[in-house]
Simulated assay, not measured.
Amino acid sequence: MTSGDGANDDLVTGVLAGAGRLDRGLADATGLSRERIKALIADGQVTIDGRLAGSASAKGSAGAAFKIVMPAARQSAAAAQDIALSIVFEDEHLIVVDKPAGMVVHPAAGNADGTLVNALLHHCAGQLSGIGGVARPGIVHRIDKDTSGLLVAAKTDLAHHGLARQFADHSIERAYLAVVKGWPDPASGTIAGRIGRSAQDRKKMAVLPSEAKRGKHAITHYETLQKLYRAALVECRLETGRTHQIRVHMASIGHMLIGDQSYGRPDPALRPMLLKIGFHRQALHAAVLGFAHPANNNKMRFCSTLPADILELIEELNGSDYENQRV
């Protein structure tokens, strides 16, 4: 795949790897989301073997040559705001930040400002990739509002394409630390299952039946690092990156994240302790992020220590008062 670097529109070219739905094949080949591909097809920006692509659901053919015109970035709808950032790494291509819990990644309904994008626009003086559109400049991936930890944003379209491709082919290293209810048995393992919108609550995600045709394939590897009072500290490594993947997968095996308000049933025995320390978010932290630098292919790997609130949670769950009460 190649991409242009003109002052105006950007041209992305390549060939389809296999047959199947056009939007899926183009997403796999470019690292762009299927929704972004659908919008570009609808806008007449995609050609296949020299012909305008007519439908996202059309069948693509292996080896077919594609061209995608990426419209030049428009003025961002988000406003630059002077919000402090914990910067782990930065160069002219990308920036890695350690996001605090409580910060939304990009503006959306109910969160028009105060987001990571607002902070990045100020810090980077507007020099962010335009591929994410006016609401999400520079955003290649995201983590939930109440999840803390590492996130990379792209300053250039070249970096955005390169990082998105690595996310698409699952070569990004991502490890999360989570405090979950109970002790997983077995202590380590792999959870695989399609994740999609819950039929009972469209605001939630769920592990779908194996025969379901909707949703997306998801794989999470987990390992118990420390047994606590009625809980455990686990490391979760992602092969895929689906919405709420760790929260949904751990809840599906009976070990919801401590503090999660959406998935699973909280342990009543832990409620007084959580109230005592004021812990009100899911205990999830993006601790490791590794990738190949999209400009020079150098291996990059960053680690983030647990934030104070999760450390306090672990200390409380590991306290001497509970030594005779462990599950």
Rank of each mutant, 00 (worst) to 15 (best):
S198T: 14
A192I: 04
T220I: 10
E173S: 00
L177F: 10
K203Q: 13
R202P: 06
L208A: 12
P209G: 03
S188A: 06
D185C: 02
K213R: 09
R214A: 05
Q200F: 04
K204F: 10
E211W: 14
K213M: 03
L208D: 08
A206N: 03
K216I: 03
A212T: 05
A218P: 13
E173C: 00
A175N: 06
I191H: 02
K216V: 03
R197K: 14
V207M: 05
A187W: 09
A199P: 09
I191W: 01
G182C: 06
H217V: 13
D185H: 12
R202F: 12
S188C: 03
G215M: 02
R214D: 05
I191Y: 04
K181I: 14
A175G: 10
T190Q: 03
R194W: 02
P184E: 10
R194P: 11
K213V: 02
A192M: 04
G215C: 02
D201R: 09
I219T: 15
T190M: 07
E173A: 00
Y176L: 14
I195Y: 13
A212P: 09
K203G: 10
G196N: 15
A187L: 06
A187Q: 09
E173V: 00
G196H: 12
L208Q: 11
A192E: 05
A218M: 12
G193V: 08
P209C: 01
R197Y: 14
K204V: 08
V179K: 11
R197G: 13
L177Y: 07
Q200T: 15
R202L: 06
G196S: 14
G189W: 03
K204S: 10
G182V: 12
V207W: 05
A199E: 13
R174Y: 04
S188V: 06
G196T: 09
L208G: 12
K216H: 01
A192Y: 05
M205Q: 08
Y176I: 06
E173N: 00
A187V: 03
V207R: 08
H217P: 15
A199Y: 14
R174L: 06
R174W: 05
